[in-house]
Design a protein around this nucleic acid. Structure first.
Lengths: 112, 112, 112, 112
DNA sequence: TTTT
DNA sequence: TTTT
């Protein structure tokens, strides 16, 4: 997808260690869950924190780099595109999931 | 949400006329469905078109402008943030939906 | 340049027909001048319009498309990176110029 | 300026300590110089590094935060708009300069 | 499930 | 459900 038509940028923290899968054709996929945290004041002047969790997918070289460099708790900037797909869950219920498929990422900081 | 931490940009076509709702506090909400279209060549050199549908939500002044100016078939550029929420469907199954909450939009073209 | 580290997006109008140049190696370059217009209210509540002109450069396939499709007055969305360079003007004074080197553009509308 | 029409994002390193100025109306301005570094392979397969320096300007609250938190060598992500202005140098020569006026920034890392 |  |  031309990045000019579909572009997502998120800065957040990784909720768990990357989930790595390798397919028959040796193609690698990594899944991440990233939390973006927003703090603002509500109508009453109270500080409110809104946390959003995002499903992130990386393929190929980006997946390999994520496997090597990223882990739970790290702060990352990701740039990618928004994509949705459907699947049937274990009870046969059709489910929809929206993911960000990464083009590039930068590790911002992490625990040593 | 600071736009620097969570930012989505999409250019696509509106699939149906805006769905307008007004709540008790007189606050207006508009829902749109936008399709982004991507054309590329696959491994075999064949042209493939990938269409993704996105759930778009507008509030307040942005909702009023969408209600006035946008309709089915229009091409729009939207800028917003990615957000997810859950709800129970009519069968009591918990569902998750991911939406883009619009900060700004520009109508790119439309039918007269 | 990785777009994640240096990314510019502008929507504006083209000030004059594209300036096309072809170099020895048959590589094509196009220059555009794009005006972005901003309207806002100042401290006194008066509407103010701020117009900024931007130097835009396109190379290769993007240059060819610009030559074919763009002309004075068109509205375009461009995505590219920020770059600066120096040169000596006709009086031997060293000058600096900042340009946006385009990765992708979309024509938003134009005169028939 | 609506960010949808004029938006710049840069990730780079600060070349010198912030230059802070306070004006009569007590409004604060900070200037930064940020280097973005790009590494790629040229036609001959050699690794080339292209460094671009960018003029960055911050006002008000953003300027105060930059003064407090940023210093030479820090890595920052800035989001802003592109703007140009002219001035006469000490020899009376008219000069043009292009700057990025910051809306938001995030410090990515820095020396302790 | 993260982080501040 | 859009569009090219």
């Amino acid at each position: 997808m031309a990045t000019i038509k579909n572009s997502v940028r998120l800065i957040g923290n990784i909720g768990m260690d990357p989930d790595v899968r390798t397919f028959d054709n040796n193609r690698k996929m990594v899944r991440l869950s990233i939390a973006t945290n927003d703090s603002y004041k509500n109508d009453k002047g109270e500080k409110v924190t809104d946390t959003q969790w995002h499903n992130i997918v990386l393929w190929g070289a980006q997946a390999s780099m994520a496997e090597t460099y990223l882990k739970k708790g790290d702060s990352v900037l990701i740039e990618g595109k928004l994509a949705s797909r459907s699947y049937s869950d274990k009870d046969g219920v059709k489910r929809y999931v929206t993911e960000v498929v990464v083009n590039e990422f930068i590790k911002m900081s992490g625990k040593e």
